[in-house]
Design a protein around this nucleic acid. Structure first.
Lengths: 207, 207
DNA sequence: TGGCTTTCATATCGAACACTACGAAAGTTG
DNA sequence: CAACTTTCGTAGTGTTCGATATGAAAGCCA
């Protein structure tokens, strides 16, 4: 079941050069997945958006699943940097606020589709794509665990009350972040979402 | 573009009786949509789950879209009853708690798929199914507006502080409710989700 | 210029998609 | 029982799905 290796990444020994910019094509694919979801985006949709033909897509990106996973990586950005930003925040509350307010900006950008690619693209799907959904869920749990650790640090240092439920608090932030995606998809304005985030942060324990 | 009328609802003048129970078949279709989503559920999936053949499905339910909308109605239940329950609650906080805790029970039922049918089934989709998504979004906005009215009543009666943002507070409840669906789909346990709800309700304004 | 390698465009592939024609079968009504 | 209405099972409609076979075209190096 070994698939042919996509040629965009490996070293190549002098041949006809690519007639398109790989990064640009990937970004357009990412936006298409973002708008329509994983299984509900067809190869025809992708080639139309990317401006390339079907064999070029398969030659450069392997297959639909690998193109999607590359799109997810482009969307999610540097996860280690996110983890470090959470760790380096002045407080867990600051980290949560930054995460949520940043999500609102991302979900309501004028140049990008509404909502979150991770939340939208894999909310549903056939059993055949369960591995793709698990991959996306892994990104969520990565962020959640780092946030929970940051909260635990604030508890240990006395910034948060000792009885604080770090898991539930981190879970609330992740829950709100996912919910914001649905609201953004429903067309809610950026200011309304920001007001929701401000309200949600009122749940933060005070000592 | 007039479609043939599904025969399950109209009066019929004596013919061969249905060999299956329409309500049972509808419930199984609803569960299938719940698990796999709208566009990502095929007619073959549905007939297999419902135990009927393709022509029977079309004869009894019209087409895929109408079958889905009937499934949504079955899932959502009596919306007017929900609205009255919100209005009749002792306080807006009670209404919100009932909504969210009920959602957790629904999203983590052992006999039903994880998460929310409305949140999962239409999170993504092609432009062709935008009308289906709008129909689902309408259910959300119906609940949200009734909750917001209940909150406004508590503000007027002095139960909530006068500066309370009713729209943002109702929006937070809806946001958490949608987010809970994603977390449940990721496999989070019922108790964890209940802890998240309890934490979220700490955001409720106190006078 | 003559290989050599890789990408290009055209034209599909078999499978799955939503959906339906048609005649046999199963009831009710006279 | 015979006429009538409706559903059932079989088989198929055209379309779109993800993914390819094939050969010409384009560039690098000798």
């Amino acid at each position: 079941m070994k698939q042919t290796e996509p040629r965009g990444r490996g070293l190549k020994k002098t041949g006809r050069p690519l007639s398109f910019d790989r990064d640009t094509a990937l970004e357009r694919a990412m936006l298409t997945f973002w708008r329509h979801g994983y299984e509900t985006t067809s190869i025809t949709d992708l080639t139309a958006a990317m401006g390339i033909t079907t064999p070029s897509l398969y030659g450069a990106f392997g297959d639909k699943k690998r193109l999607f996973l590359e799109s997810v990586a482009l969307y999610a950005g540097d996860l280690e940097a996110t983890a470090q930003a959470i760790a380096a925040a002045p407080s867990a509350l600051d980290a949560a606020r930054t995460l949520l307010m940043g999500a609102v900006i991302t979900y309501t950008g004028e140049a990008t589709p509404p909502g979150c690619l991770l939340a939208s693209a894999t909310a549903s799907g056939s059993p055949a794509s369960s591995d793709v959904r698990q991959s996306v869920a892994g990104i969520r749990s990565f962020v959640a665990s780092h946030l929970e650790q940051r909260i635990a640090r604030d508890i240990a240092s006395g910034v948060l009350p000792p009885h604080t439920d770090a898991s539930a608090l981190a879970g609330l932030v992740m829950t709100v972040m996912q919910g914001l995606s649905v609201m953004a998809r429903d067309g809610m304005a950026r200011a309304s979402l920001q007001a929701i985030v401000a309200t949600a942060l009122q749940a933060w324990p005070r000592r």
